[in-house]
């Protein structure tokens, strides 16, 4: 009998999930649907958080709806990287992905696999915020102009349903 010592047993795990945004993240996502970037101002330290978070990190303050502030959909690049190579394994069959990520609205978004390169991952200081919104700059024309300090503006998706990528990407202005 062969030893089978170096056999491997192959497997694949697919589990559906549904994550609860709650009130604060929920408001932020609702804002994106309406082409608005909403921030949340801590009443204790006055810091404005965008994107949303439930808690002011330093103050341990729990944000309430009344802390919401509407910000422009533009800002300044604080840091970035242009992604030229895809280091991920090939995207699996869409059928497999749809099973892995049950809320079907998310399937169209690169939840587990990044977009096809090239694109830039950017940290954008939204005007009026004190935090950096991690998002994308896309398109060779934009990538060529991208610098720390570049002014960028949101490019909104055509179909917006209250997800992070309702804001499709930022473009350099």
């Amino acid at each position: 009998m062969e030893s089978n010592q170096y056999r491997v047993l192959e497997g694949n795990i697919s589990v559906p999930y549904r994550w609860t945004p709650g009130d604060i993240y929920g408001r932020f996502l609702g804002g994106l649907k309406e082409k608005k970037i909403l921030g949340f101002r801590c009443p204790e330290c006055k810091k404005v958080y965008a994107p949303a978070t439930d808690i002011c990190t330093a103050c341990y303050y729990g944000f309430k709806p009344e802390d919401q502030v509407e910000l422009p959909d533009a800002g300044v690049v604080k840091s970035f990287t242009v992604v030229r190579a895809n280091l991920w394994p090939p995207k699996p069959d869409p059928e497999v992905v749809s099973k892995a990520i049950a809320p079907t609205k998310l399937v169209d978004h690169p939840l587990l696999w990044p977009p096809d390169p090239p694109y830039a991952l950017v940290a954008v200081r939204i005007e009026g915020a004190d935090t950096d919104f991690i998002h994308m700059v896309k398109g060779e024309k934009n990538l060529g102009k991208l610098k720390v300090g570049s002014k960028v503006k949101a490019v909104w998706g055509e179909q917006r349903e209250g997800y992070l990528l309702d804001l499709d990407h930022f473009e350099v202005v």
């Binding site: 994550w19 609860t20 945004p21 709650g22 009130d23 604060i24 993240y25 978070t53 439930d54 808690i55 341990y60 729990g62």
Partner: peptide, 12 residues
């Protein structure tokens, strides 16, 4: 079923 809050809000 806490559909009313996120995980961080629940812990907090």
């Amino acid at each position: 079923s806490h559909w009313d809050c996120s995980m961080p809000a629940l812990y907090r």
